[in-house]
Amino acid sequence: MEEMNFEEAMEALEKIATELEKGDLSLEESVAKFEEGIALSKKCSDIIEKAEKKITMLLQKDGKLEEENFTVEE
């Protein structure tokens, strides 16, 4: 699950929610799926929350790309 990106985690989460809603699983399976779902939900939230605002500009310097902070000139 560590390598999952947001979409994969969200997709897996939606799939589990649908499975749980159907109610065909045993109670033990339901609880296991629930826990898995909550972990996925947390993963999604983490991806959103851990993002940091960054606006940068890539500049070619001596054949190398350098990333600099960028602010719009008004």
């Binding site: 969200m10 989460l13 939606e14 589990i16 929610a17 649908t18 499975e19 749980l20 809603e21 109610g23 699983l25 109670l27 339901s30 609880v31 799926k33 629930f34 779902g37 909550i38 939900s41």
Partner: peptide
Amino acid sequence: NERRLQNGLKKKA
């Protein structure tokens, strides 16, 4: 989706 999980489990219980 979290609500769906909770409701699903509640329903099962």
